[in-house]
Structures are given as structure tokens and as C-alpha cells.
Amino acid sequence: MPPRIPFPAIARARFVPRTSVASFLFGRAQFSTSAPKAFGLKPKRTSSSGSPVLLEASRAHALSRKQTPTRTGVLAYKTGMTAIYDENGVRTAATVLQLDRVQVLATKHSKTHGYFALQVGFGWRQPKNITRPMLGHYEACGVAPKKELREFRVKDESGLLPPGTVLNADHFTVGQFVDVKANSKGKGFAGGMKRWGFSGQPASHGNSLTHRAMGSAGQSQGGGSRVLPGKRMAGRMGGQQHTVQNLKVLQVQPELGLVIVKGAVSGPKGCIVAVQDAVKRPLAKTATA
């Protein structure tokens, strides 16, 4: 008969090989989130000739090249579409986005993280449904537990806001342009016609049994006898992040927390979208225009 043991888990754990213990310790010692060394060797910022112009291969130049809004974005619910009539009676289809207790939680600085960004929280979640590590994060940020967190990159230090800052709908101004990011509705496994707009085959003229096929995938001998990488084919469609750029802000209603943008936004009703100043239409230009 096997020996009686009070707590079998202890006995089992004794037989775990020693190596896993060592690797566990080793991993802990190496773990770090924000050490400067985490970014590897720093390439030179400027030429050794003494020119102040940044070298193109440098990180600093890459940061300056990147198109980033100057201000942070917000998270919002997509609540649905409606129509807006302007003073001339012209109707515009519009999407209503609702902000819900949007707050800044933390910031990232180029000195510590390599770029400037803000962590923005949205909504509220029951603390009992949140893990202790995340509760500690919310405590450090001084905000209530959030439903969703998202990072928004900004151009420079002037775009950073102190943690706890509440962002309301009046963060945006009427007439400005925004980019809206959201996960599109999943369409499942879709054929070439639906997914890529292929023409398919004719319904008649002797066609039989082949009306929605994608057709040829490429040449035979002479074309390499292979399918080129990136060939558009049938497959999973939708359910991916999709950005709609340059949507005009038609109305802003801070008391209801609503931002109404012109046109459509990806995703189903009730999904969470990220709204930020348009990258291709900077705020300063639209304000003067």
C-alpha cells in the first residue's frame, strides 16, 4: 500500500527537477520593465563631423519621422449611428461616440521608455474582477479600476498629462478631424469576392458550377510555378483593428459625454473605439482653416 501523506501536492512538488527552480530564479533576476539597457546599444544621434542634423538611422530621427498627434486620444463606446441636420437642412449620417469616465493613468517618457505616450483608462470595472497586480497599478495611478486601458502615443512631452486627469467630450472641438480605431465586425471565412472584391465568374454563357471562385492564383511555368507571397485569397475576414481616418467632429456634448463624428466607424454597436486627433490633418491647420 502507498504511504499516507497529508497533502499530496507537497510530495509531488518534491520531485520537480532542480533545474526549473534555478531558471525561475534566473528569470526573476533579469526581469525589468524600464531599464535603459533594455533598448540595446544606442546608435549615434549625429554625425561625427559635428553637424547638428540627426542621423537618419538614429532612434531620435525615427521618433521625429513618425507621424504622431500632439494630444492624447480617448476611448469611447460606439453607441450607434444617426443623422444630423445642419442649419441649411443638409442631412449628414453620423456616428455617436460616448465617453465614459476616461482618465489618464500613466505616462511614458522618451528618457525611460523610448517614446512619449499616455495610458488612458475607460469606464469602470468591479474591483473584485480585477487581479491584485492591476489593483496595485490603479492604486498607484490614483484612479478607480477601469474597464479598458489603452496607450496613446503623443509627439512630445507637451502632450503628457498628469495621472488622474479626466478627459471629457470637450477634449475635441467641433470641426476638427479625428482618426477612429476599432475592431471591425468579424465576417468569418469569406471568399475572394467578399473579402477582396474579386469579380467572380459570369452567371451564364456556359458557366457551370463556378460563379464565385477566385480564378487563377498566378502563372504556371514561366511565372515561377508558385503562388506569390501575399496573393489575395479566401480566408478569415474582419475582426481586426481598423482605422477610419479624418472623420469630422460634427457635435460635442460634454454633459452627455458625446462626440458625434461624420460617417461610419468600424465595429458593432457597443464596441470600444479609440479616438485621437487625425494624423494627416493636424489640429493647428484645421483650427485656422
Binding site: 469616465r101 482618465q103 469602470w124 492604486e139 478607480a144 452627455l256 459625454g257
Partner: peptide, 17 residues
């Protein structure tokens, strides 16, 4: 655990609008 901010004024914004 910090207290949550007050919820938005309308749960059905499209209807309010």
C-alpha cells in the same frame, strides 16, 4: 481602491440625442 467617478448622464445616448 479608489471610488469610481459618476457614470455618464445617459445610458441611452442615441435616444437622448
Amino acid at each position: 481602491i479608489h471610488a469610481p467617478l459618476p457614470a455618464p448622464a445617459s445610458k441611452t445616448p442615441i435616444e437622448s440625442l
